[in-house]
């Protein structure tokens, strides 16, 4: 008798879920919303600003070509290489800027922590797939572009369960 009640209880708790809303993110149609515009770092206080660690964004008018991001990445992934850029900036005499290989990057964000000139941030863009290995290497010109993201799904908790609304 006890066994039968136990089995019925177990079945019942599953059947109850027919009335509960589905907790599935239907990914390509729906995308999760993140806080902020991505992980950033404030060198004056030494503390980061919460955000998603996605693809980087490089501000050409701030970058001085100091290579600190590349040095920070050396012990982690060696994903950052300093390359020549055609345009000239007065703060960047050597005209070198980081180029990031997303085939190697682990998205730890230590390069953002290393930048003292507010030049390197991370964004909410995580869809970086490419058909070739070369396509994963982002040049300084590509990193300058602000990504287009449409992420609006949030977890909503109601009496009938949690959903991605």
């Amino acid at each position: 008798m006890n066994t039968a009640t136990g089995i019925i209880k177990a079945l019942n708790s599953g059947i109850k879920h027919l009335a509960i809303k589905r907790f599935t993110l239907r990914y390509p149609e729906e995308k999760l919303k993140f806080v902020g515009d991505g992980y950033q770092f404030d060198p004056s206080t030494g503390v980061g600003i919460a955000g998603y660690k996605g693809r980087h964004m490089l501000f050409h008018d701030h970058c001085t070509g100091c290579q600190l991001c590349s040095i920070a990445c050396e012990g982690v992934a060696e994903a950052i290489a300093m390359v020549k850029v055609p345009e000239e900036h007065k703060q960047n005499k050597k005209a070198i800027m980081p180029q990031i290989d997303y085939g190697k990057c682990v998205f730890c964000g230590l390069c953002v922590d290393a930048c003292p000139f507010y030049a390197l941030y991370m964004t909410n863009d995580y869809e970086l797939s490419s058909f070739s290995k070369e396509g994963l290497i982002y040049t300084p010109a590509q990193l300058q572009v602000k990504p287009f993201v449409s992420q609006d799904s949030e977890i909503k908790i109601t009496d009938r369960g949690a959903t991605h609304g």
Partner: peptide, 15 residues
């Protein structure tokens, strides 16, 4: 249900 907490950690830490 793990997703509930992963979402919190993602907000907190960015990954």
């Amino acid at each position: 249900d793990r997703e509930l907490l992963i979402d919190l950690l993602e907000k907190m830490t960015g990954a």
